[in-house]
């Protein structure tokens, strides 16, 4: 009797080991390029490829002295903040409406998912055409802001809506029964309950906007965002300075994920 159980256990352990080896390989595939990029941002050579010539911080020094890059970074950061504020406000308002039944709900939901299900390049083209049709000048806080708000809106909505959907509505009813009006109920019951979702949505929308490339590529006009600047660097001549910028962007993204998970855990 012990024999089959033992062999089955052994088979299971073997299967698990294969699974884990598989998992490790896949994580390696996802991470090796990023790690490699970071390592070679410290390489004391003009090439981004082996061999290793020694450790240097000169590429980072160059990044810090690069004025165009600083402008692009500030553009991206302020665009990200504005995008996050607008899109999470719109998304939260819509999420509240979606707690009720109303006519055309399916249609509105479809409309909301449309920017998420349309290839980014198609939206970029469509907005370019719209701007040209009305003879508007594309720019950072016009066409690009619009493109980013539209792009992040479905994500903001979905994050806040799942949060709203999950909590017990009788909590609000209890507050109303106890004499709180709509404003007080919202301030003291509803909002504290969805706050983690709202903050997560803000961080997520900011990150999506900060990294957005393809829609921006079409509608940015003469200005620059960080991904656009990085793109032009890659296209002209990739030096370890590009790696250093990449490493900095990876570091920034990591800190936002950390922020996001802290707020989502609450």
């Amino acid at each position: 009797m012990t024999e089959p159980i033992l062999s089955r256990l052994r088979a299971k352990a073997g299967g698990d080991a294969t699974l884990y080896a598989y998992g490790v390989l896949l994580y390696l595939f996802l991470y090796a390029p990023i790690v490699y990029l970071i390592i070679f941002s410290f390489n004391d050579a003009t090439a981004t490829t082996p061999p290793w010539r020694g450790f240097t911080l000169q590429w980072y020094r160059q990044v810090l002295q690069n004025v165009d890059l600083r402008v692009a970074f500030l553009n991206s950061a302020s665009l990200g903040v504005m995008t996050a504020v607008i899109s999470v406000t719109l998304g939260t308002l819509m999420a509240f409406a979606f707690r009720w039944r109303f006519r055309g709900k399916g249609f509105v939901f479809g409309l909301l998912l449309l920017p998420m299900l349309t290839p980014g390049i198609v939206l970029g083209v469509a907005l370019t055409l719209l701007w040209r049709f009305f003879r508007l000048t594309p720019g950072l806080f016009s066409s690009t802001l619009v493109a980013h708000v539209i792009y992040t809106l479905p994500f903001a909505f979905l994050i806040v809506f799942t949060r709203l959907h999950r909590f017990d509505r009788s909590l609000e009813e209890a507050a109303m029964d106890l004499g709180a009006d709509h404003i007080r109920t919202f301030r003291h019951v509803t909002f504290p309950l969805i706050r983690p979702g709202v903050i997560a949505a803000v961080i997520f929308a900011f990150t999506l906007s900060f990294d957005e490339f393809i829609r921006t590529f079409f509608v940015i006009g003469n200005e620059n965002t960080l991904p656009m600047y990085v793109w032009s660097m890659i296209m002209t001549d990739s030096t370890p300075q590009t790696n250093a910028i990449g490493a900095i962007i990876v570091g920034l993204s990591l800190s936002w994920i950390l922020l996001g998970t802290v707020f989502l855990r609450r």
């Binding site: 998992g23 994580y27 996802l30 991470y31 090796a32 390029p33 990023i34 490699y36 990029l37 070679f40 090439a47 981004t48 490829t49 082996p50 990150t207 900060f210 990294d211 490339f213 991904p227 990085v230 793109w231 890659i234 990739s238 590009t242 990449g246 962007i249 990876v250 993204s253 990591l254 936002w256 994920i257 998970t261």
Partner: peptide
């Protein structure tokens, strides 16, 4: 493990695509 899947989701795909460049190239890794 879940976080490790999420992280690349948040990192610019321009950077992640560029990262393959010095690995696959003629003088690459």
């Amino acid at each position: 493990l879940l976080l490790l899947v999420f992280i690349p989701y948040w990192i610019s795909y321009v950077i992640r695509t560029y990262a393959w460049y010095p690995i696959l190239g003629k003088e690459g890794a």
